[in-house]
Design a protein around this nucleic acid. Sequence first.
DNA 1: CATGAATGAGGGTTCATTCAT
DNA 2: GATGAATGAACCCTCATTCAT
Lengths: 207, 207, 207, 207
Amino acid sequence: MISKEENILFAAEKLFSEKGFEKTSTREISRAANVNISMISYYFGSKEKLLEKLFEMRMVESQSYIQEIIANEKLNVWEKISLIVDRYTKRVRQMKVFYNILQTEQLTNKNERIITFLKNSKLGYLKVYDELCREGFEKKIFKKLPNIALLHATLNGMMFYAMNGLPMYKEYFNVSKDNSDFDDHYFEELNLHIKQVLKNLLGYEEN
Amino acid sequence: MISKEENILFAAEKLFSEKGFEKTSTREISRAANVNISMISYYFGSKEKLLEKLFEMRMVESQSYIQEIIANEKLNVWEKISLIVDRYTKRVRQMKVFYNILQTEQLTNKNERIITFLKNSKLGYLKVYDELCREGFEKKIFKKLPNIALLHATLNGMMFYAMNGLPMYKEYFNVSKDNSDFDDHYFEELNLHIKQVLKNLLGYEEN
Amino acid sequence: MISKEENILFAAEKLFSEKGFEKTSTREISRAANVNISMISYYFGSKEKLLEKLFEMRMVESQSYIQEIIANEKLNVWEKISLIVDRYTKRVRQMKVFYNILQTEQLTNKNERIITFLKNSKLGYLKVYDELCREGFEKKIFKKLPNIALLHATLNGMMFYAMNGLPMYKEYFNVSKDNSDFDDHYFEELNLHIKQVLKNLLGYEEN
Amino acid sequence: MISKEENILFAAEKLFSEKGFEKTSTREISRAANVNISMISYYFGSKEKLLEKLFEMRMVESQSYIQEIIANEKLNVWEKISLIVDRYTKRVRQMKVFYNILQTEQLTNKNERIITFLKNSKLGYLKVYDELCREGFEKKIFKKLPNIALLHATLNGMMFYAMNGLPMYKEYFNVSKDNSDFDDHYFEELNLHIKQVLKNLLGYEEN
DNA sequence: CATGAATGAGGGTTCATTCAT
DNA sequence: GATGAATGAACCCTCATTCAT
């Protein structure tokens, strides 16, 4: 049983992703969620706080798995990075709708809470990558110690641009929009591609 | 002497970049451009057509240099790619304001003309990269023939994410917001970084 | 032990006085009374009926003392008038919060029951003053028989305007807002002032 | 020719007087003024600023005549006071609609500009009365020097309460609502009554 | 007897655009 | 060609009240 509150949240997520936050009206959300328009204010306070709630929910979800990975002592640094990429790729694909919103909002949104969510999330990832890279370099697992900002930008940039560009690439390759086998293959290839680029950046060679 | 029309165009570009298209009102644009509100409809037809005009103007500008490079017979394929990256990096930095809009609009905009501009632009680049890669591979200058979609996504993703993330990276490195020396160095490093990643993807080794 | 119903009534009275009936929301009342919003409709039927109840309560209270005074055979007419003024002055000061509401509502309220409350109350006072003035005139205690409407308007007008204007007068006299000694003295003086004006209007001279 | 702006202002004044500021909707005002609803924001910025404008307009009007009177060297102090009362009575009757609003708003309104308008106006009157009373007392025209606050409260209280109470008094005297002869006589009597009360307060006797 | 989630109407305001001048 | 007053639709939100529990 899905609650009205969640109904609103998910309906809003979809619409924000498709049309952007500003272009989505509370009326549309209420219609899509099949609830009265006043429920948005009732549950969330305002349209903007609904967006905040959405960010809070989705970003808390994402924060959990990374801690789990870096705490796992059975994995070496490359395995950790590799696993993070696996999870991240998977997650971005699953949560495409939300990451669409995220990308838009981080470019124009001036909401303080959302800015803080995003910044803290990114700074957290930077720190993790920083530590893993240093550790790998000190243990001579990695031969290079890359600029962590550029490594982060490369990883995330590839991920998001690849996701966003997929429909256009399908068109370039003359693949039907509905061909989901292509998608599966594409994301698999993307995952390997990202890891290959990272290996090169880190100077890591699999035995 | 700058015309009223251009005044509006540039004022709108700045505001769209800062606040997003939807959140920018025609009143704000007219105030910033120091013209009457009705001039926007008068010159451009509507707010949306103003955005179209902006895209048209900026994207036509970008299309010109690439043809020039690939037509230059004095350059080998890697030099061409290298030059494209140089120009692109420079351009994205210079036109940061516009590329901010571009990134937002390509995620949510449903305007047909703008979608077409963007798609054609990207398909054009894809074709160029495709041809250069094939040529380099055939001429054994490159050892690998990478997935062109992933190469494109990597190149563009790195570029945009690195640009957007700069303020956050400065914070991570405890660098003052106003430190433009850092910026200069950052973009220089970014340029080299992009080329290094491309070299690896293409299996290109400098003599 | 104060009941929830009374809690609401007194919280509403305070808020109506401070902000006016219209600007006070049921949410605010419920918050101030520490009860659920629906209790207002539950106990009183509606926000408007809550106001009616408030008027009913306060005006019934005020009606009682006047009958007591005019029935007292030990007092002569002037003593009766003097006592009414004493009680009225005291009551208006004590019930300042309610009389604030009363003044506002009699100017704009269209609620029939409230209009009737107010009208009956005033007509009752008019009748009392009328009878006392006539009796005093016939018994030659008063030398004049003033227009009873103007006498009523003068008495009430002085009272309410003096009450409302107090903060401003304090400012004029450079007296601190918190100086309650000034207030005590002010209301004492007001009481004497009202009686003096009445004496003049009635042509009454103390032995 | 009456402008749209004035149309709105006067329509709003009437409605505010009848129903109170809060209970009057912008839609009603626009309907009454026969203009589009958005014109209120267009001309005045907001409903509240419309009220401010109304106060500004009416109170500036009232400030002018008093200066004229006190500057007139041909009049002695009593004649000045008498003339102020004449004008004030006349004005309150003419501007009944506005003074209704004024009375309501000074009890509940929290708008700073309006509070300031009202306070300054009253402090101005207090000062004028203060000076005239002192002058009259020093010149032995008046035998008494009354508490200026109480004098002010008495004058204004009588005026407003008499105006507000008129319909009720007519009912008490069994006079038809539509009998305007009664009104004329009533206000004439009120004017004399006020002056008589003031004479008593000031200890002034006409030769 | 009491609750609080849910309602629908209406609130004030802002929007992009039009049109008479 | 250029203006700015004026428009009506749509915006988000808050309101008093209801009703299932």
